[in-house]
């Protein structure tokens, strides 16, 4: 029994230490929860807005499709020229769904790396807005003609941006795995991306797949085209 006392003492001290540690982290969590309680309101607002925006986008998509149909049937006289140029400009701007040969790139967060190094900064293992931004630029260098990320068509004014650690494409949240579809010459595009960001990402062990497709469909841009400040000069 005598021999046991010091060992017991050490074990008790250790347990006490851990308990205290545990409590401090739990306290932190509790205060964090309090914050997220306050954030709940904001989250409800965000969900409502996102729902409404999804509805609006559906409506816009339907109206644009209807308009396209009407414009292609109503063609006579001087209107015809105007409408053909308009139709071309729409394809160019990204207002119509398009189809063609291209590639599909999927990238996911490096979850295995994150699990293997749980104490490491998780930022080193997730896909960032800058990765996608660079990939898109490289696809364009490879003469991509139309690009979409997780079903969001990119147009001239599109942005890819982190808010906190959520990636937004034109203010719509996109979640990993990211699927980038690009229509263009598969050879040129793959050559362009594999010299740039993709090689970097592959080195960092992000799971990446590239798939060629003969018949790739990219949806139309569903957002707004509202310009307040720009005028023809």
């Amino acid at each position: 029994m005598r021999k046991a006392i010091p060992t017991f003492l050490i074990i008790c001290i250790l347990t006490g230490f851990l308990l205290a540690f545990q409590f401090t982290t739990q306290n932190k969590n509790a205060s964090f929860n309090a914050v997220s309680q306050r954030n709940n309101n904001l989250i409800t607002i965000i969900h409502d807005l996102e729902k409404e925006i999804a509805n609006q986008e559906d409506q816009i998509e339907a109206m644009r499709a209807q308009l396209n149909d009407l414009q292609s049937t109503h063609s006579k006289g001087k209107l015809q020229d105007l409408q053909t140029t308009l139709a071309k400009a729409k394809v160019e701007a990204g207002l119509t769904p398009v189809v063609g040969k291209g590639i599909i790139i999927t990238i996911d967060d490096n979850q295995e790396g994150m699990k293997a190094n749980p104490n490491d900064d998780p930022n080193k293992y997730i896909v960032h807005d800058e990765h996608l931004l660079n990939l898109v630029n490289e696809l364009r260098i490879g003469s991509a003609e139309a690009i979409a990320i997780n079903g969001h068509r990119l147009i001239t004014t599109s942005e890819i941006r982190c808010v906190g650690n959520l990636i937004n494409v034109d203010m719509s949240r996109v979640a990993p795995p990211y699927e980038i579809r690009a229509i263009g010459s598969p050879k040129l595009m793959i050559e362009s991306i594999s010299m740039g960001k993709l090689a970097e990402l592959e080195n960092d062990n992000y799971p990446i797949t590239i798939e060629e497709s003969e018949h790739l469909v990219i949806p139309a841009y569903r957002g707004d085209l509202q310009f307040k400040y720009t005028n023809k000069s």
Binding site: L42, I53, Q56, N168, M171, D224
Partner: peptide, 15 residues
């Protein structure tokens, strides 16, 4: 996010 989404909603309504 709320700010950005509200702006977007407004623009979509105009569109």
């Amino acid at each position: 996010m709320v700010r950005g989404l509200s702006e977007k909603r407004q623009k979509l309504a105009l569109e």
